[in-house]
Simulated scan of single mutants.
Amino acid sequence: MSFNPYLSFDGNCAEAFGFYEKALGGKIEAMLTHGETPASADTPPEWQDKIIHACLSLNGTVIMGGDVPPQMYQPMTGFSVNVVMPTATEAERVFAALSQDGTVQMPMAETFWAERFGMATDRFGVPWMVNCFRPDPNGENCQ
């Protein structure tokens, strides 16, 4: 079983996924517009180039998303996408990229469980937690 976040955007999914591809070092595997689907004839002209489905691959994990029509869109709340980085340096880099032009809730810092941890909402409204866990001598980190 796997769990993959599916993020909803207010018309800027393509821009957001291009940003995540760079910031996270992933690869966009799919970017399908409404106009490329069998339902394109029933899609308003202004939504033909909006994304119905995007998929970004990140070392065996994926983040998916799409643009949501304005009458259905709601800002993202009540969750965070948690990213676990292998080194403190990488955690710092990813956090700096994700928080650029966004809002930092908790600056990147050392904590009792992590070499580095920070929380931010990016410029697209997606809440993120960036972790670089401390090595656990018993190998019991929940990563």
Results as ranks from 00 to 15, higher is better:
Q143G: 00
I28E: 07
A14K: 15
V83R: 02
V126M: 04
A41T: 07
I28G: 02
I63Y: 07
W113K: 03
K50F: 02
N59H: 09
V62N: 10
F112D: 07
A30I: 06
F19P: 06
E15H: 14
A96Q: 07
M119D: 04
N12G: 05
N138V: 00
S8K: 06
N4C: 08
L56M: 08
E115G: 09
A14T: 10
P107K: 15
M108F: 02
E90Y: 09
G118Q: 15
E110H: 10
G60M: 03
L56I: 02
Y73P: 00
F9I: 11
M108I: 15
A114Y: 01
F112M: 11
V130I: 15
M76E: 01
S57F: 03
F19S: 06
F3R: 07
N138W: 01
V68I: 04
F112S: 10
G65W: 02
E29K: 08
N12E: 08
W47P: 01
Q74R: 08
G125T: 01
P69I: 06
M119T: 15
A120I: 11
A91E: 09
A91W: 08
V84P: 00
R116P: 12
T77L: 00
F117C: 14
E92T: 14
T89A: 13
P86A: 09
L32M: 14
F17E: 14
V62C: 13
Q71I: 05
P38H: 10
A120S: 15
A88K: 13
C13T: 02
M72C: 04
P38T: 12
D101H: 07
P127I: 00
V130C: 10
P45Q: 02
G60I: 05
Q71G: 10
A23L: 03
W47L: 07
E140N: 09
